[in-house]
Design a protein around this nucleic acid. Structure first.
Lengths: 108, 108
DNA sequence: CTCTTGTGTACCCCAACAGTTACGTACCCG
DNA sequence: CGGGTACGTAACTGTTGGGGTACACAAGAG
């Protein structure tokens, strides 16, 4: 999950994922719509592959990449769960404060 | 949203956020439970503050940081929306493939 | 067996960043 | 007014990571 999170923290890689969302594409096609050269794209694809976010299918000389959203679903799960906890915690704090912040000084 | 995503891609900063989830804490307290020195923590806090993930309240000489989950909620939204789209897209591709991948060769 | 195409890898460069120590600053206490 | 405390910032350093160029390599085309 950590790898996936770090992977999507990069702009270029997010763009590549969004492109792959419209269907599988070869490395060259992905490179065509990015402002960076092919080798750079190749390296980005390696990161995405190692994070489990894409998978490759060798088709003659072409390497066709396709999306694999599972790891992102895990990230989403993690975020959703933690957000729920945190927001709940914050609500509790706010009502506690509303009931009187003075209590703080009584418990150093 | 981008800033928040980059911010939580870092291990130390995620740890700090999780600590803050149990209630506000001072910079020193946060530094105490991390393996890095206070100045480093201070800079991490700056990143989190600029991403809108925490807010500060000056209390005498102490600076009390508290969680502000809104930006994370935006990240979660983004992820959820895109995941829904992508998984839907993948399902469509799979059924299309099930119906016969031969069609591919007919439309070069 | 060459030649071209499509990709990945090796190597180098540079910018960004995490971490450190040293220092400045604001605040309460006496 | 000192003096200690809790921070942040400045300056420096080592490491990481993205970018490019040059090259290696597999596979179909001829």
């Amino acid at each position: 999950m950590d790898a996936a999170l770090r992977a999507i923290a990069d702009d270029s890689r997010r763009t590549m994922l969004e492109a792959l969302a419209s269907g599988p594409a070869t490395a060259g096609e992905l490179a065509a719509l990015l402002p960076i050269a092919r080798p750079g794209v190749s390296r980005h694809l390696r990161v995405l592959r190692e994070a489990g976010l894409v998978e490759v299918r060798q088709e003659a000389q072409r390497r066709v990449y396709s999306l694999r959203p599972q790891p992102l679903a895990e990230v989403d799960d993690w975020l959703t769960r933690h957000l729920a906890m945190w927001e709940h915690r914050l609500d509790a704090l706010h009502t506690e404060i509303a009931r009187g912040t003075r209590a703080r000084k009584d418990t150093p």
